[in-house]
Simulated scan of single mutants.
Amino acid sequence: MAGDALSDLLKTVRLTGATFFDIKAQDPWAVCSPAPSSILPKILPGADHLISYHVLTTGRCFARIIGKEAIVVEAGEVVVFTRSDPHIMSSNPDLQADPPTADVLEIASASQKPFHLNYVSDGSISAGLVCGYLACDALPFNPLLEALPQVIKAGDSKGDAGWLGQFIKLAVSEVAQKRAGSETVLTKLSELMFVDVLRRYVESLPPQHTGWLAGLRDPHLNKALALIHDRPASNWTVEALAKESALSRTVLAERFTKIVGMPPMHYLAKWRMQIASELLSTGNVNIATIAADIGYESEAAFSRAFKKMIGVPPSAWRLGVRPAPGSGSDEASETEIAPAAPAAN
């Protein structure tokens, strides 16, 4: 039984969340996002990608990437900046703001989460926000990030009856009551919220849309992706994937390449390297064991393929060395893609 490709990806790229700020504001107000480099080390040291989110719990506001058009956000909606581009949340789309100073971020990171920011002078609140972050690995291969737009806004058509409405209720309750474990609860809630936003985005994609998320929506490609994620060490061929995905070899190869953006065997090679990079970064498993776990019959074959595709050898990656842009190769030969021992299906 194949697993869930989206869940598997989120685990492998180490998705983790943190809720940093509870903001109460009074018109006119504006808040600018801090630089990702000041937040990432506090959420997931070693990660290289930051996602920002803002849940509007009360009122109405505007969200905009600096230099781009503003988006209206209503109470009960969440806006996600998938690349954490510099952005401003404000009561008016024309207002400007400076990023938080380093001392504010240090105090916030050292305090119980969320850190409360009060921009109200006379007790009249015009907007309330819970703002947080998600961190993950972008390198060497995170097809989800490549498939997402810069900004996603989501909300419940059912009001509080939908999942996001329930999330907001729970988040507001945790912020207000400050019970033991609330920081952990808010962190996990932010991760669940992000998955729900992704589901909604996938459901909203037009039929002609391409990309990794569009592949998840195609039942045959979803099955092929799940099989690759579930059994990366298997000695996969396009024929074997096609058979288990209920498609002909030709149709699977053409559809996979057109929608996902690369041939199935190329995807398999990149996914194996993503798993390897995560194991190298987070554990003490020796390189020979990692090679076997992802389908390589020898440490030498794995090391050659890793260095060619990623740009640095596995031993260097383990030490935190990251390749210069363009140093790796997106192409892989058939022997580098599938030099596996007999499949353990």
Rank of each mutant, 00 (worst) to 15 (best):
P206G: 06
R179I: 05
D85C: 10
I125R: 13
A75Y: 10
A180T: 12
N92P: 00
T12L: 08
D98Q: 12
N235A: 15
A253H: 14
G159R: 03
S126Y: 02
I88S: 01
P323K: 03
P264I: 06
R272D: 04
G59C: 09
V175L: 05
Q112G: 07
F20C: 03
P323N: 03
D218L: 11
S33E: 01
P45G: 04
N345V: 12
T282M: 13
S126G: 11
K153M: 09
R304D: 11
Q208M: 00
G159S: 03
E299S: 12
G261S: 02
P232K: 09
S204V: 08
L56P: 00
L227M: 14
V251M: 13
V120D: 01
K42T: 13
E77S: 14
A276R: 08
I23Y: 13
R199V: 08
R272G: 04
S182Y: 08
G181Q: 02
T257L: 13
P314R: 09
Q166G: 15
V55M: 14
T101C: 10
L205T: 07
S327Y: 00
D156W: 00
H87W: 01
L319A: 15
E334M: 10
A2Y: 11
P263W: 12
P114F: 03
E239M: 08
R249E: 15
V104E: 12
F20Q: 11
R64Q: 12
L56V: 15
L252H: 11
I65Q: 11
K153L: 13
N345P: 00
E331H: 05
A2I: 02
A97C: 01
S33I: 07
A324N: 03
L40G: 03
A288G: 09
T57R: 10
P93C: 06
S182G: 04
P93H: 09
L198T: 11
D22W: 13
T57W: 02
P86H: 05
R199S: 12
I39F: 04
D196W: 09
L40S: 10
L50Q: 06
D196T: 09
P219A: 09
S190T: 10
E239C: 00
S190C: 12
R14Q: 15
L129S: 09
A343T: 04
E146R: 13
Y201Q: 05
G328V: 02
V202Q: 10
R217I: 00
A154L: 07
G320F: 10
K188M: 10
Y267I: 08
I65K: 12
G311Y: 01
V251W: 13
V285H: 12
T335E: 12
D94H: 13
N286D: 15
A338S: 15
T250R: 08
F141T: 01
L148M: 04
V130E: 05
G181D: 09
K307M: 11
S248V: 08
S52N: 10
A63F: 15
R179Y: 04
A344W: 00
S248M: 05
F115L: 04
P140E: 07
R272C: 06
G76F: 08
P86M: 03
F302K: 04
L56N: 11
D103K: 09
V202S: 09
A147R: 05
I228P: 13
D98I: 03
S333V: 00
E239W: 00
L40C: 07
T58F: 12
F115I: 07
